[in-house]
Write a protein that binds this DNA or RNA. Sequence first.
DNA 1: CCATACAATTACCTTTCGGTAACTTTTGAT
DNA 2: ATCAAAAGTTACCGAAAGGTAATTGTATGG
Lengths: 83, 83
Amino acid sequence: MDKEYIKSNESMKIETAKDLGNFVREIRESQKMTQADILGLADTGNRFIVELENGKPTVQFQKVLNVLHVLGLEIVIQKKGSF
Amino acid sequence: MDKEYIKSNESMKIETAKDLGNFVREIRESQKMTQADILGLADTGNRFIVELENGKPTVQFQKVLNVLHVLGLEIVIQKKGSF
DNA sequence: CCATACAATTACCTTTCGGTAACTTTTGAT
DNA sequence: ATCAAAAGTTACCGAAAGGTAATTGTATGG
């Protein structure tokens, strides 16, 4: 099965920064947005977007929240294996 | 005052870094763990735990993942309003 | 060929993080 | 209530990573 990151109401479990980066790029492209579109809305620089989508582990948490917000996504924390 | 952050199989939506910090502290204490316990297991310094639990927005994403892992939690991303 | 748009990288400066240690609650036993 | 131990917070420093702005690919189109 190819990397299907999310569909309709399904959720994507994030285990690594690479998961996050791949997922963000996938969603951004599926919404026909450019990196620059996100920069303005999420109050960040282009370098951040590049590094985030490349899976850099040290990206700042709040900035990730901002980007996800722009993409219409939200973060949820749950006990492992809650499915 | 007594916010109920999570119970059994329920999930906690994270909108801000403060949400994350409050939640992490709540879970850590509910599991009778000290900050020092987490330091060793999550390979981080004391300063990080303090700042994370205080809701610092600039904490690094991967380190957050490490701490959540130690607490038996996982991060999920979903479309807003999927709950 | 040049211009435009998007993506990725580089340069410069600022900020964070870990280690250790000091200092301040908080907890618990007598 | 007092005292001691444990837990949590803060401070200093050097190493590492972050942000912005500018630069350099990589296509596509006039």
